[in-house]
Simulated assay, not measured.
Amino acid sequence: MDDAKARFVEAGRRALAGKATEAAPSVNFLSYDEMHRVLAPLRITIVRALAGQGALSIREVARRVDRDVQAVHRDVTTLVNAGIVDRTESGVEFPYDRIHFDYDLGVAA
């Protein structure tokens, strides 16, 4: 959260100074456990199936990952709610070029 706040403040400072800022989309999780819950291995498989494909129907995603349509629908809903995947009129899509993971592990308090 501190990193997200710092980036927000820096973007505001640059905007007030009249300097162009290019925003990079990002999704932040409060903990590693939360990230792992949302981006569980089966959901990462869905993201990989969507990458670079444009919008696909849930049924097509399920076919590509060889899973049950209802299970894929539940996982896609989780990904949509987390901002990883977008729902469009044509289906669902992963609108980004990549996923980059960046996290720190420290001593437990």
Rank of each mutant, 00 (worst) to 15 (best):
T77L: 10
S26A: 15
V47R: 03
R98Y: 15
L56W: 09
V85W: 07
R59V: 11
P25A: 12
G18S: 07
S26W: 13
A71Y: 11
G83S: 06
G91Q: 07
D102V: 10
A15I: 13
R87Q: 09
K19A: 13
T45R: 02
N28M: 14
E22Y: 13
T77Y: 07
D104I: 05
V69Y: 12
T21G: 09
D75T: 10
S31N: 11
F94Y: 09
Q70S: 11
E34I: 12
P25C: 05
D2G: 03
A55R: 01
I46W: 01
S90T: 09
A51Y: 03
F8N: 15
V38N: 02
K5I: 01
R98G: 12
V80Y: 11
G83E: 08
V61K: 00
R63P: 02
T88A: 14
T78P: 04
D97L: 13
R7D: 08
G54T: 01
L50C: 00
D75L: 05
H73M: 04
A55I: 03
R37A: 04
R87V: 04
H73D: 05
F29Y: 10
V76D: 07
A4I: 12
R74H: 03
D66E: 13
E89L: 08
M35C: 10
V76P: 08
G18C: 07
E34D: 15
G83I: 08
I84A: 02
N28W: 14
V92L: 08
K19M: 10
D2M: 02
V61Y: 02
L39F: 03
G106L: 06
V92K: 01
A55F: 03
S26I: 11
L39P: 00
P25Y: 10
R59D: 10
R7M: 09
Y32M: 04
I84Q: 04
I58T: 13
R87N: 05
L39G: 03
I58C: 10
F94A: 06
P41R: 09
M35V: 05
T78Q: 12
V107K: 15
V69A: 14
E89T: 06
E89A: 08
T78H: 11
Y103R: 08
Y103H: 11
A62I: 06
D104K: 05
F94C: 08
F101G: 04
G12M: 15
H36K: 09
